[in-house]
Simulated scan of single mutants.
Amino acid sequence: MRIALFATCIGDTMFPEAVKSTALVLTRLGHEVVFPTGQTCCGQMHVNTGYQPDALPLVENYVECFSDESIDAVVVPSGSCVGSVRHQHEIVASRYGTSILCDGVETVKGKTYELSELLVDVLGVTDVGAYYPHRVTYHPTCHSLRMLRVGDKPLQLLREVRDIDLVELPEADSCCGFGGTFAVKNAETSTAMLADKIRNVGDTGAEYCCASDSSCLTHIGGGMTRLQMGTRTVHLAEILASVDKHAVGKDAGTMSTGTRA
């Protein structure tokens, strides 16, 4: 399968390892991963803060970058951004775009997947050969849980990781309090929600808190760092890309660049 990788803004600027790990997992499974270099932001922040017309060029750009018929699927290491592509792009295109853009949005959103969706639902894989000898708890982010309804797909993948000690997170489906600009506009409420989340993480005794959205990991990780908890955050893709280096040779996975890529 030829799969295009959408890095997302936060992945590109703050969490490149999650992006690279996504490509690594898929290339190890034998798929061609391409990276359209013209990609930018999905436009979610603009829409969420009331600037829908300003998101139009970003929606147009997304369609242009990923509408290539040779691309079988688009993978995104972010449930939040996939939620924007599937739900917000249609709104923006219908209100401010053209009928041609609306058709393009419909086509591209139909092949855009969050990583766990692509692996479990499309590729039919739960065991990607990962090895992660650490105690881990999983936080299901709001967009992936409520908007995309990925269910337990990330947990299906984590349960197959060798030597992982996967522990259940109390009140796992509670929001961490980030919510993009919500954390800025409603700082006190956000902080209270975060306190509940990191207390639950601490109760698990986990070394790592895992999630599939880097934005939530930023929020949770920041809170745990300030409290000097010692628990670190890790993106789902990074766990899935980890292997026992003593058992395998040097990774041969590659990612190509450009629209042909």
Rank of each mutant, 00 (worst) to 15 (best):
V34R: 08
S84P: 02
N48V: 00
T257K: 02
D244K: 06
D152M: 09
M193S: 01
G11D: 05
L157M: 12
M147R: 08
G179T: 06
N61I: 02
R260Y: 10
T257P: 00
K245E: 14
G202N: 09
K111L: 06
A23H: 06
H143F: 09
K109H: 02
T126Y: 06
Y138I: 03
S174G: 01
G253F: 09
S144A: 15
H246Y: 04
V184H: 09
I164N: 11
G249F: 10
L240Q: 07
C175A: 10
E64C: 00
V122T: 11
D203Y: 02
G180P: 12
D244M: 03
T231M: 07
S256N: 06
S84D: 07
A261F: 11
H143G: 05
T204Q: 09
R135Y: 07
T141H: 05
S67P: 01
E90I: 02
K109C: 04
L236D: 01
G258H: 10
D173K: 14
T259S: 13
R260K: 10
R199A: 15
G129H: 07
G104Y: 08
S84Q: 04
F15P: 00
V184D: 04
Y132N: 05
H139L: 09
D173R: 15
T191Y: 03
S174Y: 13
S144L: 14
E160R: 15
A130K: 12
D173T: 15
E114V: 01
I164T: 10
D163F: 07
A211K: 03
Y132D: 03
I239M: 07
R260N: 08
I220Q: 12
Y113S: 06
C102Q: 14
Q39K: 03
T22G: 08
L115V: 12
E32G: 00
A206F: 01
N200R: 07
L148I: 06
H87C: 00
E238P: 10
D165R: 13
V82C: 07
T40C: 01
T181Y: 12
S70F: 00
D121W: 05
R149A: 13
V75F: 03
L5S: 08
R232K: 15
P36F: 03
P16Y: 04
P16C: 06
C216E: 09
S67F: 02
G180F: 06
L101Y: 05
S174N: 13
Q52D: 13
H143Q: 08
L58D: 05
F6E: 05
T254K: 14
L56A: 04
K245H: 10
L169P: 08
I3P: 04
T257H: 05
M255G: 03
T181G: 01
A247E: 14
V248S: 12
C42D: 09
Q52E: 15
A4H: 07
G124P: 08
Q52H: 10
D68M: 02
P36A: 05
P154I: 11
S174A: 14
L24F: 02
S94Q: 15
G151Q: 03
P53H: 09
E238R: 10
A18N: 07
L29E: 11
Y96G: 11
T27D: 13
G83L: 01
